[in-house]
Design a protein around this nucleic acid. Sequence first.
DNA 1: TATTGTTATACTCTATAACTATA
DNA 2: TATAGTTATAGAGTATAACAATA
Lengths: 181, 181
Amino acid sequence: MPDLSAANALRRPRGPRKRPAPRLATPAPDTGGTPAAEAPEVDTSYLQTLLGYNARRAALAVIAVFLRRMAPYDLRPVDFSVLSVVAYNPGVTSRQICATLDILPPNLVGMIKSLHKRGLILRKPHPTDRRAQGLHLSAAGQRLYREAQATATELEQGVAHGLNADEVQTLITLLRRVYQR
Amino acid sequence: MPDLSAANALRRPRGPRKRPAPRLATPAPDTGGTPAAEAPEVDTSYLQTLLGYNARRAALAVIAVFLRRMAPYDLRPVDFSVLSVVAYNPGVTSRQICATLDILPPNLVGMIKSLHKRGLILRKPHPTDRRAQGLHLSAAGQRLYREAQATATELEQGVAHGLNADEVQTLITLLRRVYQR
DNA sequence: TATTGTTATACTCTATAACTATA
DNA sequence: TATAGTTATAGAGTATAACAATA
């Protein structure tokens, strides 16, 4: 599975984007003689018609901004998502977080351990199931999450440069309809 | 950088999605007593307001479909993208592909090697720069790519379930404005 | 018999350094 | 001195199997 973490995008900022080229129904015939190197522009007009290509590029761009802005809190997107689920669902179990965020249980263990070690979350015995444990934000976790969420909300405005509030709302609505059943 | 490859999404299909909950400005206070386990619904209403969260989920959903449909051609999204760039830009160099698709040069080497080994692409000497080599699709590569592109185009219709052609076009336009400078 | 949390581990994807041949 | 392609390798991210404790 491809990685959407955008580390590359973060450390190697792109140059100016190419202007969209006219759509082609089929690839240009290979005349064999003229290398594309002479014209530095590379035609990606077909790829730009694909929802998956654009969704991935957009997700990577947003994640890159997210990584920069969340660096002061030392939170990756997945850490922020976990804290957010715990914040809004006090007492939630690891298993529920896995199902909600599509994380495999073995991969969540280390994140929970790390957040616990940083004093951000508490593990309390589950009242009815002694196998499970209820997760809660500590006071420090609540403070950190409150600031991080404010940053995330604020970040939304800047991410989509030309997009106004209505356009962002339309975009989010359409994205939800893509991944929801 | 997070991985957008959607392997998990592929092998562990999700259950039914939760209905959107009303937005909350701040997390619910932790009353400490009531575990979320009793109500299996987990509140993700705040995360669902974030462009990054929705873009990543949508990208993963599309990629999962892409992986399934491209399996007969043994092409990952990145392989398809590389073939597409070569198809529309015969004679393109590795370096240009890296800049266009945001792939690091060392990571492209293996892909090119693999596609070459499969007889899909040809490396020709670059006419003006003996360090570089121009990449071209072989006849077999052109046949395979033509079929793969048809599948990708066809796939677009089915990916966005309820979305009509206009809505998909709007979505793509908005996504482009997010990641383009 | 199934589930929660966990360990160990393998595999994939991405990143960095450094080399060679050429510009 | 810089760039194209490459090798080797390190580091994230994601995957599967299997276990003890509990349901």
